[in-house]
Lab assay of single mutants.
Amino acid sequence: MAEQVALSRTQVCGILREELFQGDAFHQSDTHIFIIMGASGDLAKKKIYPTIWWLFRDGLLPENTFIVGYARSRLTVADIRKQSEPFFKATPEEKLKLEDFFARNSYVAGQYDDAASYQRLNSHMNALHLGSQANRLFYLALPPTVYEAVTKNIHESCMSQIGWNRIIVEKPFGRDLQSSDRLSNHISSLFREDQIYRIDHYLGKEMVQNLMVLRFANRIFGPIWNRDNIACVILTFKEPFGTEGRGGYFDEFGIIRDVMQNHLLQMLCLVAMEKPASTNSDDVRDEKVKVLKCISEVQANNVVLGQYVGNPDGEGEATKGYLDDPTVPRGSTTATFAAVVLYVENERWDGVPFILRCGKALNERKAEVRLQFHDVAGDIFHQQCKRNELVIRVQPNEAVYTKMMTKKPGMFFNPEESELDLTYGNRYKNVKLPDAYERLILDVFCGSQMHFVRSDELREAWRIFTPLLHQIELEKPKPIPYIYGSRGPTEADELMKRVGFQYEGTYKWVNP
């Protein structure tokens, strides 16, 4: 592979701008107003304001973009700056750019259920340069409990009458099928589907988006991507930290609602779906819905739930269990780990287990898709061969690698495990991989909904998990304890083995 010439960040961002501006969906010269509902909250200060700053800094926003914060707290732009700027990672050389960014910011205080507050917000936006005809993007960085009041008031008082209007809704989209349907029906009564952007930030990850290209742009994968060759698929999300004093919020939802029903299920769809007619948003989402419709409700015998306990040999936070978090209700049975087996009941995947695993306070930070292939028929190497695996590593250190057998150097035919490896950090030294939120917010500006969740996708996802969630809430089974920093409950490994996964433990990928 030829040595790549190092590029400056300015040059890299210039390439990104060229890609972005050559499309006809990006209205570079139009006025846009980006409204952050819930501007005083954690999500706004840690993710949304920093993301908008990065896009502005790199010249990736339309030229005439204004940012308006809205929340109940009586704040000023200076207050917003004070709480969000520490997350910007701005350099001293960017000081003038930073001043320009905050000059485009404003803030309006108001209630979430008060019509007069929204009329005041609308008047404020109209007073901005060309504000009355601007395109408006409303980001709901809010708890779902206020979605209905907020969307109703936005629709009645704050819509642009000339430009387009788009609304970005953060997960969780309800707690179960019934609450999700209620919320979807409410929002759909106010906005068209092409105006609604239900954001799952995992769909903005580079390697998640790469799944489609790997599958449908490489001839070698087509013939082997089926039940005849693939023994099982494992989708993993692991965090090495616990709730760390923020367990009160987590306890309301648990690990299945927080990660599995959305992030992991979306990745499953991209692995299992048929080739779409095109890369058009609805063509892709149509195929994802077909996959979900082929999955039956989760069966309790295919589920393992766990909850982390303190590690007596650990240090600091590792010595504390979930129930030691003062914000967690006493005696909570909320799971911090889950392993679930699903089956896609169609011709391509009949009988292939899709194993979804996620948890907190585990032994490493990792998100990946792992396809394990069947054993080689007619073994001539005296059971020395391990199964081939194709691994798409989402985070950290984005990579695609194939675990395969090669001859060990020497005189004899002794096979050993090795890999074919594409590590993004080595291959793409001159490429700026956008943060997931950067990519998705740019998608909203461009009107691309491919990486957002459609209402029928959402409904099918909740259909699969709601009976299990209701059973857990009714019966309150005690989750299996696992030690902070471990791989999780051993019962999860036993479940995976029972459905056909072979864990060798003899080879570990190392970032080159």
Rank of each mutant, 00 (worst) to 15 (best):
S184M: 12
E193I: 02
A231F: 06
L61M: 09
A90S: 10
S179I: 03
L142H: 01
K171H: 02
G247Q: 07
L43T: 00
V169W: 04
V77M: 10
A149H: 14
Q133T: 11
R192I: 06
T145F: 12
I230L: 07
I162H: 09
R81P: 06
I15M: 15
K46S: 04
F66T: 05
H129P: 11
N122P: 01
L190P: 02
H27A: 10
K89P: 06
D113Q: 14
R192N: 09
N64Y: 12
T51N: 14
L177R: 13
P92R: 08
N218G: 04
N218D: 00
N122S: 10
N135H: 11
F56T: 04
E93Y: 05
G131N: 06
H124R: 12
V233K: 02
T91W: 12
V213E: 06
A134N: 12
D194V: 08
F26Q: 15
R166M: 00
Y49G: 02
F173E: 00
H129T: 12
P92N: 15
A103K: 15
I36N: 02
S184W: 06
G222N: 13
P240A: 08
V108W: 04
I224G: 08
I33L: 13
F221M: 12
P240D: 14
Y147F: 08
A44F: 03
R9V: 14
P144N: 02
L61V: 13
R246P: 00
K46L: 15
K82W: 08
Q209G: 06
G174V: 05
K238P: 02
E193F: 01
P62N: 10
E85M: 10
Q133H: 10
G23M: 13
G131M: 10
F216V: 01
I234Q: 14
D181Y: 13
A25T: 15
K89I: 08
F66V: 08
G254M: 03
P50M: 09
R17E: 13
I167C: 13
G248M: 02
S180I: 02
V5E: 10
E170L: 03
L235D: 00
R57Q: 08
P223Y: 05
F87C: 14
I162A: 11
R166C: 02
P172H: 00
I15A: 08
E63T: 08
N105H: 10
D251W: 04
I224F: 08
G69T: 01
N218C: 07
